[in-house]
């Protein structure tokens, strides 16, 4: 099993619904976020291109954050989801420094927090909160090992890119282009 997510940049409008839905689902304190929106404009008026991306932890297969964690708090869970065990985390911040995607933050309670792909929902057969709420239905989540999952199907059909592939982390967040 290999959980992954694809985000369709042709449909995302950058509304931030994924951000606020994650915050209310996961009790992320106001002022912090586990996912965020990136807007990129290219060109000169009126020859322009615009891309919106909903970004989060890439749940890398080769995660520097897991490798560098001195306590084992950062670890791989079901389907390769990268998780942090709160009470093992000493808040040293090594993982934050090692992440090429800046996907982690220190929770005001002292531990490091990040996207979990809403594993608590996934285990109940639900979609992650961001995927379930998105008004443009631009996000696809599922098991890459299952050829019939939403994410497998869309990745097979569409062109995609990953972010900072040169970091060699094998990210599992795919952006449809």
């Amino acid at each position: 099993m290999r959980y992954a997510m694809a985000v369709d940049t042709k449909k995302c409008v950058g509304c931030s619904d994924c951000v606020v839905a994650c915050q209310t689902e996961n009790d992320v304190p106001i002022g912090y976020c586990r996912d965020w929106i990136v807007e990129v404009t290219d060109g000169t008026y009126p020859q322009l291109e615009l891309e919106h991306r909903s970004e989060r932890c890439n749940h890398c297969e080769n995660s520097p954050c897991v490798r560098c964690c001195p306590t084992g708090a950062s670890h791989y869970s079901d389907g390769g989801i990268v998780m942090v065990t709160k009470n093992k985390c000493i808040g040293c911040g090594a993982c934050i420094a090692s992440c090429p995607y800046d996907a982690r933050y220190t929770h005001p309670k002292g531990y490091v927090d990040k996207c979990t792909f809403c594993i608590h929902r996934v285990q109940k057969g639900q979609q992650p909160a961001c995927v379930a709420v998105c008004p443009t239905k631009c996000m696809y989540f599922g098991d890459l090992d299952d050829p019939n999952s939403d994410v497998s199907k869309v990745i097979k059909k569409r062109k995609y890119k990953t972010l900072i592939p040169e970091a060699g982390t094998k990210p599992q967040l795919y952006f449809l282009i």
């Binding site: 449909k11 409008v13 322009l48 291109e49 615009l50 008004p135 443009t136």
Partner: peptide
């Protein structure tokens, strides 16, 4: 309307946007 526009994009609909600003919709 946002939801349905996304569905229409999926189905390959042509969108024509008239705006002095390069709006999000213009980008689609």
């Amino acid at each position: 309307h946002v939801q349905e526009m996304s569905d229409a994009i999926d189905k390959g609909a042509t969108i024509i946007t008239v705006d002095p600003r390069f709006s999000t919709a213009a980008g689609k």
